[in-house]
Amino acid sequence: MAQSHHTTDHSDHVGHAPAHHEASLTAYFVVFFALMVFTVLTVAASRVNLGVWNTPLALAIAVTKAVMVILWFMHVIHSPRMTWIVIISSFLWLGVMFVLIFSDYLTRAFNIF
């Protein structure tokens, strides 16, 4: 409990993971290549009409790409647990916003009285 970090104590500062934890150059290239593949996929998917699945598919590709950027390019995969908590709670908040806004938009047709 009693963490006693003080101003002068910068040895284990948040967000500065020690060097040996950093992703290798290969990982960056692999992720970059994957992102390129997904970009091509986005364009390709836009040319096929999947009906109601158009939007979900586009969003699924976008989310996958975003996750890759967050995990590798933003170094989250090698970050301390506190960083994970911050990121997960941010998305949780975004979820709250979406769910409650849709509690309005999706229920306008309900006739409960």
Binding site: V96, L100, F110, I112
Partner: peptide
Amino acid sequence: FLVWAHHMFVAGISVYS
């Protein structure tokens, strides 16, 4: 964070919401 639409009760949001 869960209560904001109480500012919009007469603005036209759904009754359920």
